[in-house]
């Protein structure tokens, strides 16, 4: 077959159906929005219960994480995510799903070599690069602070 990779790439682009962007975005908007709304309801409730703002936020995150873990264990989070896409990926519940799902999946390879070693196989990069960014910002902030008149 006399065909360049560029030509085949063009053929492939024509033959491959594109993602249904509008539909995907509607799902992501409503499911993601609903999860954030639930977060706001929780945060307000914890605030009314007398927690200070940072504690109320932390408790909100922890509650959402626990809820996501339960739904993940039941297999429902995956079912929702197969439609909601980024709507379930981007909120903190998606992070929890990324931690809990390998823990369940690789349990059969042992508590240490399976659960322990594989738990952060998906979420690990988020922690690694989030931490790196925060450390860089911390160092920058340390040296910028005197200049900001602090």
């Amino acid at each position: 077959m006399k065909l360049s990779k560029q030509e085949y790439d063009r053929m492939n682009r024509q033959a491959s159906p594109p993602s249904p962007v509008a539909k995907d975005c509607l799902w992501a908007f409503f499911v993601g929005g609903a999860i954030c709304l639930l977060g706001e309801v929780l945060r307000t409730a914890y605030g009314r219960a007398g927690f200070i703002l940072t504690d109320a936020s932390a408790l909100t995150s922890i509650t959402l994480v626990a809820l996501s873990a339960v739904l993940t264990a039941l297999g429902w989070y995956q079912k929702l995510a197969s439609r909601a896409g980024a709507g379930t990926l981007v909120p903190i519940t998606g992070f929890a799903n990324a931690v809990v799902s390998p823990a369940i999946e690789y349990r059969v390879e042992g508590l240490v070599t399976g659960v322990g070693a594989k738990m952060f196989v998906i979420a690990g990069p988020v922690i690694v690069w989030g931490m790196m960014a925060s450390v860089v910002w911390g160092v920058v902030y340390y040296f910028l602070r005197p200049m900001m008149g602090g």
Partner: peptide
């Protein structure tokens, strides 16, 4: 991915 992982 793990079977419980949510992906589209």
């Amino acid at each position: 991915f793990p079977l419980e992982y949510g992906g589209k």
